[in-house]
Design a protein around this nucleic acid. Sequence first.
DNA 1: GCAGATAGTATGTCAAACAGATGGATAGTC
DNA 2: GACTATCCATCTGTTTGACATACTATCTGC
Lengths: 182, 182
Amino acid sequence: MAEITVAAGGPPDALDADLGWALGVVFRAYVKSANALFHDLPGGPRGYQVLAAAAQETPGRQGALAQRLGIDKTVMTYLVDDLEAAGLVQRRPDPADRRHKRIVATDLGRATWRRTQDLLDHAEEHILAPLDPADRTTFRDLLRRLAARAQSLDPVADTCQIVTDLAPDDPAPRRPRHAPRP
Amino acid sequence: MAEITVAAGGPPDALDADLGWALGVVFRAYVKSANALFHDLPGGPRGYQVLAAAAQETPGRQGALAQRLGIDKTVMTYLVDDLEAAGLVQRRPDPADRRHKRIVATDLGRATWRRTQDLLDHAEEHILAPLDPADRTTFRDLLRRLAARAQSLDPVADTCQIVTDLAPDDPAPRRPRHAPRP
DNA sequence: GCAGATAGTATGTCAAACAGATGGATAGTC
DNA sequence: GACTATCCATCTGTTTGACATACTATCTGC
């Protein structure tokens, strides 16, 4: 329990400076935990997120929910299908605009959400374990700020600007896929 | 620059408390930017990570690198194939143990890495833009600590413990996939 | 009403991930 | 010195999931 031994015992790993690497590792750890937690729930972690959004009073439109959760709308259809089949949510056409469908949680859905939320809290604390309580709060706050901002704007537009500014030529041509070798 | 206006102007979005949601949003924003940046590089963002690891002096074994980067070993094979075909890295059998293959960057690979690293720095700063410099440093530090720890231990084992402790029954049966409806 | 736009749905294609098996190479054992 | 066990990289096949496209129902404007 004392020794950590980061893989190859790596002193000269300049990889740590890479924000993307750290983000990926933490995100994968979260997804892995969430997958283990929610393997009973239809749709896994995403099913939980939809259920959570549905259970929290604001019956949003299906499309807006998909955008906010970063889920493709076609995937959202089957996700809600499964949740509905399990009796956790209901699709109700918006009386004001019957094109929209509001996703509302049933009583069973709300109960299930509360139960899984407890599990999730444990898992989250487990991931944040290496930080002391004050740092956990700080991290959550900073991350939430980043997420709120990242969602409001399109990152590709600005990034493409950077690309065209700094990298005018294409050294490596794009290969279609990996070819089977003789 | 003053107003933020989070998407739908959402006051009643209790979703913000969800760590997984925030992680997902930020991570997706990063991947999106990185994809736009690295669409010339074989393998995209992952190709960059492999190249970065190869360019930074520590010619690690291919398997250890895959584990550290969170890439499946079979994927790593084709990733290195593509990078090698582009002349960015070389596979060299470890003289000490010829089962291992060390991934070393060529001169072209090092040059390419340096160039793309500049791009990446811009993109990272772009994502961290909503935070002031002090908070950026704090965030990077906290995230790095979490990543270092998350990688050393298997999250599933402990999480399954939580599951068996708190959720003994399965309310929703697992559906194989989405069935086409009649 | 009719044209255009929008939300959700259905369908098809494709890339990525995972599991299992194979081949080459090493280490320990007798 | 041969035998077994182990390990790494590779190959193969399967499956999951994401995306692009087209379609239907509905709303808004004229």
